[in-house]
């Protein structure tokens, strides 16, 4: 039963920190809450029997990807004036219509989930099984993912390089 309790605890942390991440006016604070949410997700992964995915969640998501955000926040040089602007942008009435539709969608999903049988989960799938599957039937998907990453690399390099040259022109 400890596992079950841990699951609900992690789920609760994840929900709360995500809500906080979305509503913060300070980008750095939002980022920290987002990292907490991701770590909670990693715990859930571990609990449902996917330890390899849990490790990847911590290393890549919470580690590598979030560091990118940190770098960008550093480059943007955000000032306290920005927070005032964020306050002005985040007026309560802006939330009404999107929240209404999100609630509708949630209700629909809940309705559909409630109609199924009471399914349980709890099979351990270790890294070896994942690796065999990944480089067996899914080898083409791996190749495609590598190409996608290459495209992302080239795209980021292209966009960022022009940014740098323009900055250099401004300073000189």
């Amino acid at each position: 039963m400890l596992e079950l309790a841990l699951f609900y605890l992690a789920a609760g942390i994840s929900l709360v920190s995500t809500i906080l991440a979305v509503t913060r006016v300070n980008a750095t604070h939002a980022l920290i809450y987002l990292i907490i949410s991701l770590l909670a997700s990693a715990i859930i992964f571990y609990l449902v029997g996917a330890p390899f995915a849990a490790v990847l969640e911590v290393v890549i998501y919470a580690g590598a990807i979030m560091v990118l955000f940190v770098f960008v926040i550093m480059m943007l040089n955000l000032s306290p004036a920005g927070e005032a602007i964020e306050h002005r942008w985040l007026q309560p009435r802006m939330w009404i219509i999107p929240a209404l539709f999100c609630t509708l969608l949630l209700a629909e999903i809940t309705y559909m989930l409630s109609r199924g049988d009471n399914l349980l989960m709890g099979h351990m799938v270790g890294p070896k099984a994942v690796g065999l599957e990944l480089f067996g039937p899914y080898v083409l998907a791996v190749e495609i993912a590598s190409m996608l990453l290459l495209a992302g690399l080239v795209g980021a390099f292209h966009l960022g390089r022009r940014y740098l040259t323009e900055l250099r022109e401004e300073t000189s």
Binding site: E3, L4, L15, V22, L47, I109, T110, M121
Partner: peptide
């Protein structure tokens, strides 16, 4: 066997997280 957790709860959590993210995209 590791732990027995209802799958619906896991999926519901995923749906709620997804919708919070969507809300963020629409509002921020």
């Amino acid at each position: 066997e590791v732990v027995v957790i209802p799958m619906e709860h896991g999926l519901l959590l995923a749906a709620i997280l997804f919708l919070i993210g969507l809300l963020g995209v629409m509002v921020r």
